[in-house]
Design a binder for these strands. Sequence first.
DNA 1: GTGATATTTAGATGATTATCTTATCATCTA
DNA 2: TAGATGATAAGATAATCATCTAAATATCAC
Lengths: 84, 84
Amino acid sequence: MDATFKALSDPSRRKILALLREEDLTAGEIAAHFATSWASVSHHLGVLREAELVVAEREGQFIRYSLNTTVLQDVLQHLMELSS
Amino acid sequence: MDATFKALSDPSRRKILALLREEDLTAGEIAAHFATSWASVSHHLGVLREAELVVAEREGQFIRYSLNTTVLQDVLQHLMELSS
DNA sequence: GTGATATTTAGATGATTATCTTATCATCTA
DNA sequence: TAGATGATAAGATAATCATCTAAATATCAC
């Protein structure tokens, strides 16, 4: 749960999650939405992968990312227990 | 929303929120639950205040802290929009 | 295999952060 | 007012983090 919250604490990473909510995207498509370097975006994707908030799957030359809503549900559960 | 997630990303601060979920507590009562220095706990309380996740109210010699569930609800809303 | 494209990794740097000790501020009691 | 207690602020330090450039890895097309 610690890694999850830490992953969520960066606005770039939350933006990535919001993009993936619309549709699955390759790393390049995600990076295209940012002004920072590809390496920086790749770093954020690594953090999100580590936290299991996203899933990466190679598709030939590309790597396609998708949301793991299960972990997001866990976070929601945790926060609801705090706020209820 | 940024400050809120950053505030939530530290386990000590989430522990403080969990304590406050049970009952309102003074800064000293909160600090008693931690092995770190009072100053460190006070720092965390400052971060939580800044994020408006808690409300501080002076009661004579003491300062009593309570949860601000409104902001927690906002976080929940934000996360639900990501996960739905 | 060679070259081209997609992505990640490595190493470095500057900024932020959590923690500590010490000092300061606020309130109470006598 | 003086001393004691509750709490925060200031200043220092070590660790973590986001970002960069350059290098490495993986796949595809030829």
